[in-house]
Amino acid sequence: MGKDVTFRVFRGEPDEDGDSCGEMVDYTVEMDEGMVVLDVIHQIQTEHAPDLSCRWNCKAGKCGSCSAEVNGKPRLMCMTRMSDIEEETPAGQPVLVKPMQAFPLTKDLVVDVSWAYELNKTITPLAGPAEFDWNFQQNEADRVQEFRACIECMLCIDTCHVLREHKLFDEFAGPRFFVRLANLEMHPLDTEDRLASIKDEYGIGYCNITRCCTDVCPAGINITDNAIIPLKERIVTEYYDPIAWVAKKIGLRK
């Protein structure tokens, strides 16, 4: 209570080439009990820098707006408690807050995630029933409800080396969208088949199952084991399994 904390926050905008250009600026504010990182950022806006950019909405881990890298780790600022941050930050050092590094910078802590919105539009939508006459059990719902918990925070995208280091944004859909694709493929009411695009357009083969995405997912989705691996398995069965291939040729499978 009443203790001071110093945040070292990235302030800047892209330069003419679109590269991040800015500096880390120190701000010291007084903390109140139970604060989260986002509260400190708001305190900084109120006391020092009204024009410090950051996104937020729900302040309760439900909307996925406040993603940033705190002490180098991608997380939701609204769900990161200062008590935990104090524990992990070396004594006498400021807390480092930077925007997500995998995306182009807009300003300060805000990044441009339009790639994700554009990619989402290319995914074949659900083909559901024409009449109101379906019926499915909770165990079928369970399989996809996990995927539907995604809050589109993009922390998994920020973490995945295929995108963060190798920048394969044109070839690889990234964990968030494998979650979405798995949701569609395993949806009890869907009749579409997206396996070809998952293999070719969305490049699931680039994923080498490092599980870094699963580690950062604030919605607790087991992205790698429950979404990506089953999709990979379906692709193997569809395209590389000789028995399935023959069965398909002679019309035993769709």
Binding site: F132, F136, A141, P188
Partner: peptide
């Protein structure tokens, strides 16, 4: 009621009753 059913038709997955509704 029809607006809710429509959401399911479009992909929403609400919790189920034992009868699958």
């Amino acid at each position: 009621p029809d607006r809710i059913r429509e959401l399911e038709q479009w992909g929403a997955i609400f919790d189920r009753t034992p009868a699958g509704l």
